[in-house]
Amino acid sequence: MSILGRVADLFTAKTHKLLNALEDPNEVLDLSYEKMLSGLQETKAHLADVIAQQKSLERQITTADHEIAGAEDDAATAVKAERDDLAKAALVHRRRAMDNRATLEQALNAILPQISKLTDYQQRLQERIEKFRTQKETMKASYAAAQAQVKAQQSLTGIGERLGGVGETYQRAEDRMLATRDKADAMDSMIEQGIVNDPLDKRSSAEKELAALRDKHAVDDDLAALKAQLGPKVIGSSSSAGSLPKPEGEAKE
């Protein structure tokens, strides 16, 4: 295959793909239906023209019949009056009317089959249009249902254009949350180890440890002072309050 042939095939394939992407089945069905209706209207117009010709020929044939009858009457009247010249003129007129009538009848017989065919074609085309209209509405309803089903499935699976990045967005958010949490845990560990200090606290690590020890001893001293202040009675009563009473027999002994 030549280069031009391959380019032509490629262009045709691209064109068909673009048309398929732009083509809406509902619009195509409506357009086809409109074309069929237009064809039916044209058929009706042609049939009306042919029927009009039929009526015109029938009217002319009727007129020719009147002329023939009148010419025969004129010829008979001329014969009775012994006017052969007038009788001959009437018979000539009768002959011409008869020839004209034969021509008109021949034309009428020629268009009668056309009228029959156009009438039959119109009836079949109208039935086909009604059938296509029903099929069109059914197909449009099925297409709408299929579209709704596809959109629902896309919403559930996240495949659609609007929801296509939901899974990735959720994954990125989860990764960012985990990274932030790990960073917070690392900061807590560094603060506990003294690697990171409060910028407002100017004490060294040793000073902080000493302060923690002083706080611990101070709490122990406060507890001992509280016990000394309450005295041994309070402490004894508190310790005996939890013991069980002795039975009455043992108490008498």
Rank of each mutant, 00 (worst) to 15 (best):
H46P: 00
E192M: 11
A186F: 02
D215F: 12
R214C: 04
Q149A: 10
L210D: 12
K117L: 12
K80F: 01
A184H: 06
E130P: 03
N197F: 11
A224T: 05
L223K: 14
T119I: 01
I129H: 02
R96M: 11
A179K: 15
A97L: 07
V234A: 13
D85V: 03
L37M: 09
E34R: 14
Q149D: 02
D120K: 12
E42S: 07
A64D: 14
V234R: 04
E168C: 02
S38C: 05
L19G: 05
L22M: 06
I235E: 14
K246C: 04
T43W: 00
T119Q: 07
A71P: 05
A78N: 05
A89Q: 10
I195N: 06
A145S: 04
L210G: 06
A48G: 05
Y143F: 03
P232N: 05
M98C: 11
V79F: 06
G236A: 11
L178F: 12
R124H: 09
M187S: 01
A241T: 01
K252T: 03
F11L: 09
L22W: 07
V28G: 03
E127C: 02
A87F: 10
E248F: 04
I111H: 07
A184L: 10
G194E: 01
L47Q: 02
L18G: 03
T43S: 06
D182P: 07
A241K: 05
E67T: 12
L4C: 05
R181H: 11
E23P: 02
L40M: 04
D182I: 13
L163A: 09
H16M: 11
R101H: 15
T138E: 09
E248K: 03
A45R: 03
V234H: 11
L29T: 07
E72R: 15
R172L: 09
D182H: 14
A184F: 08
A218S: 13
D201M: 08
N109W: 08
D215E: 14
D221T: 09
V166D: 04
A81F: 07
T169Y: 01
M36T: 02
E72M: 15
A45F: 00
A110E: 13
K183G: 12
I68S: 13
E72N: 15
S204L: 10
P199K: 09
E82A: 15
E23H: 08
K183S: 13
A8I: 04
Q135D: 13
N100W: 08
A144M: 02
G242Q: 00
V196C: 10
D201F: 06
L230H: 09
N197G: 07
Q171G: 01
T12P: 00
L10H: 01
S56P: 02
L178M: 13
R133K: 13
L104C: 06
S56N: 05
P199N: 09
E27R: 08
M139H: 02
D9S: 00
E67W: 06
G194I: 04
P247R: 05
R101K: 15
E34F: 14
P232T: 04
R214N: 04
E58P: 03
I111V: 12
T134Y: 09
A87D: 11
L244P: 00
V79P: 00
H66T: 12
D215Q: 15
R124I: 05
D182Y: 12
M190Q: 14
K136R: 11
S32L: 13
H46K: 12
Q53V: 02
E105M: 15
S2A: 08
G5N: 10
L40Y: 00
L125P: 00
L4W: 06
T180R: 14
G194Q: 07
G70L: 09
K151E: 13
I235R: 08
E168A: 06
